[in-house]
Design a protein around this nucleic acid. Structure first.
Ligand SMILES: NC(=O)c1ccc[n+]([C@@H]2O[C@H](COP(=O)([O-])OP(=O)(O)OC[C@H]3O[C@@H](n4cnc5c(N)ncnc54)[C@H](O)[C@@H]3O)[C@@H](O)[C@H]2O)c1
Ligand SMILES: NC(=O)c1ccc[n+]([C@@H]2O[C@H](COP(=O)([O-])OP(=O)(O)OC[C@H]3O[C@@H](n4cnc5c(N)ncnc54)[C@H](O)[C@@H]3O)[C@@H](O)[C@H]2O)c1
Lengths: 208, 208
DNA sequence: ATAACGCTGTTATTTTTTTCACAATTTAAT
DNA sequence: ATTAAATTGTGAAAAAAATAACAGCGTTAT
């Protein structure tokens, strides 16, 4: 199968989210141009993206919503449920934990870690908080491949290294630092300062 | 001046953040290939980006760190301080407010809004929380052009419309919905589910 | 002075991503 | 059956982004 770009994956995820929100008994099908209006992408882009996962619609009828959701799901999520580890139960960690809870059946934060005695060994949102010392042990035992970093900036690198050692293959990093880890591990950075600065730049220059 | 792409802006912001973190009296200059190692971009890319804001380094010496930070700052931030409005003081809103506090001199959340009586008319991190009913009034009075949305998903569209009405030009949206607002307003979406799904996808497929 | 070095600035090239445009196809109407 | 209508799937074109390549220059060593 041809490799799919990061941008395409992002759009596919957007389509799936959108479709999940409009499931109804009334409408069974949807056209690429409708998805285009809803997302702001072009219809050609959408047809191409959907083509790339091997799903086919029908001319005249468009795409069958239920089947498309199913195909997108298989492509994005794979077969098995993916457990996720979260490190750092501060503001950000808690928001993330609350938010993901029950939202995607195939993704669940099954283990969290902190080094604050007030948090360790308690259960948050149904998720056990372990001491960060046990990180490798738990991640290996539960065969977790996805990690979220929500610790202060100067702890992030060390957490990332330990995740890498424990066999994590993808990291979502909320700390505002570039992580230095072996290639082969996918890292997605979500730096809030960057986001605000970017919006501020376009807000400022748009009006000139 | 030629218009600068979104991707370039993101990288410029990354360079600036990085340089701010390594300010020291020891090292005065930096080479494009050093920035390349630190960021993971190529040196050619970096020279090109820096060129695009009109800054020039010196052969042999590379870039003067202080001057480069200054040029990047002028380009990214502009002259004047930019006030920012935050709507929704839940988990996400609070994290954002705490986090941005004092981090960028030119960016400050000067007004926040909620509809929860327990929060309205109180001060959080030095930032006044107004009732969301007064949104237009305050935003217009303080001439705010940048807004952050951190309210529940089904409130986001209405908040966005009110922001647009009040003259906001850029929105950072943490709610997992596509906002429908007039063109000319820049919108940056930060959907956490999307981020986790993306990382999970690459974690899963990388190891195959 | 001058030569050698190693960098930047910038043009050219390549690669990737998006858009265009239309033949093929399915359905519904006649 | 035949026609008309409207959409998909996709090759081709265009646009955007990244990389490569190197001339020219400032610095340093000699
Ligand atoms: N991307 C964003 O939107 C955003 C917003 C705010 C903050 N941040 C960043 O996210 C990170 C967390 O922010 P926060 O506001 O939640 O901070 P916080 O201080 O509220 O939470 C940090 C948590 O990590 C725990 N911790 C500290 N060191 C640890 C370690 N070595 N191992 C395990 N746990 C450890 C602390 O006990 C605490 O519970 C910071 O790096 C911050 O800069 C990002
Ligand atoms: N992008 C992310 O990383 C991420 C993570 C978690 C949550 N979220 C999203 O961010 C948003 C906020 O999440 P949260 O966990 O902070 O939720 P929350 O419920 O903790 O906070 C929402 C806040 O908005 C206020 N509010 C509600 N309606 C309002 C209105 N009409 N006007 C003004 N204020 C109003 C509430 O009083 C509350 O203080 C949600 O849309 C959620 O889906 C995003």
């Amino acid at each position: 199968m041809k490799t799919i770009s990061e941008k395409t994956i992002e759009r596919l995820i957007i389509y799936r989210g959108l479709l999940l929100n409009l499931v109804s008994d009334k409408v069974k099908n949807i056209f690429s141009h409708q998805l285009a209006t809803m997302t702001g992408f072009t219809s050609a882009q959408i047809r191409r993206d959907i083509m790339s996962i091997g799903y086919s619609g029908s001319p005249v009828r468009g795409y069958d919503i239920q089947n498309l959701i199913k195909s997108l799901g298989e492509f994005i999520d794979g077969e098995e449920k993916q457990p996720v580890a979260l490190v750092g139960l501060g503001h950000v960690g808690r928001a993330v934990l609350d938010y993901l809870k029950g939202r995607r059946p195939k993704l669940e934060i099954t283990a969290s870690f902190d080094d604050d005695p007030a948090k360790v060994d308690r259960v948050f949102q149904g998720c056990m908080c372990y001491h960060v010392n046990d990180l490798e042990k738990i991640i290996e035992k539960e065969n977790i491949k996805v990690g979220i970093i929500a610790v202060p900036a100067d702890e992030a690198q060390s957490v990332a290294e330990r995740m890498a050692n424990a066999g994590i293959k993808g990291i979502l990093n909320y700390a505002p630092v570039k992580l230095n880890i072996p290639s082969g591990i996918y890292v997605e950075n979500r730096d809030m300062t960057l986001a605000v600065e970017k919006v501020a730049y376009f807000a400022r220059t748009a009006s000139e």
